[in-house]
Design a protein around this nucleic acid. Structure first.
Length: 195
DNA sequence: TGCCCGATTAACT
DNA sequence: GTTAATCGGGCAA
């Protein structure tokens, strides 16, 4: 039996939570899969939305851990984060990619795509596949429509620089399932291994 | 108020 | 490799 993830899990450092989420299962209304990629954003980090203080958009980040922070990216996509650390830390983990396991037909329909590998391989893509929008900003992660299950076996985790940011680009706060074909991009170590 | 930019993606050349 | 799509935050005026 797989353990559900509760508030205690998220109340820890983003650098503990992000790697521990790799291999966990994320479902939204029964649709989703295994988390294979996540990034840590700490409030002291210039790349974090909370770095400049609380605003209407990021206010969920300043609340208690274990809730969803959803924001619009580039005016087009939605991105899903899990609020972490003790309340007020304003730190979160961005969910960047899933290996689809549940509700493949629904995901294909929403994405207009047949290629399983591209259904959830990116923060905007997985929100489209799971139909997550700003309407779900602030929802608790340990209650429906969310369902989060801890991984039940050991996994090999890769880490490296985060993607798509212009500040603090050198920090290796991206974590992923080593060798997964569902990553939004391979990790550097994997590129080296494949050559 | 106006302007620039971004934790992105897909469709181009 | 480049670029358009598209919107809210942040900052200058």
């Amino acid at each position: 039996m797989t353990a559900r993830l509760h508030r205690d899990f998220f109340g820890r450092s983003v650098h503990a939570v992000a790697p521990d989420l790799i291999g966990a299962t994320l479902l939204f209304r029964g649709v989703g899969g295994i988390i294979v990629e996540a990034e840590a954003y700490h409030h002291t980090d210039p790349a974090a939305h909370s770095f400049g203080g609380e605003t209407k958009r990021n206010s969920i980040m300043f609340g208690p851990p274990g809730f969803a922070y959803v924001y619009r990216s580039y005016g087009i996509h939605w991105c899903l984060n899990f609020v972490c650390e003790p309340e007020g830390s304003a730190s979160a983990v961005l969910i960047r990619a899933l290996e689809p396991t549940h509700g493949l037909a629904a995901m294909r329909r929403r994405r207009g795509l047949a290629d399983e590998r591209l259904l959830c391989s990116g923060p905007g893509r997985l929100c489209e596949a799971l139909a997550i929008t700003s309407a779900h900003n602030g929802l608790a992660l340990d209650r429906p429509p969310f369902r989060l299950l801890a991984r039940d076996k050991d996994v090999e985790i890769a880490s490296g620089p985060r993607i798509g940011i212009t500040k603090a680009v050198e920090l290796p706060w991206r974590y992923g399932l080593k060798g997964s074909r569902f990553l939004s991009k391979p990790f550097r170590s994997e590129i080296a291994n494949s050559e």
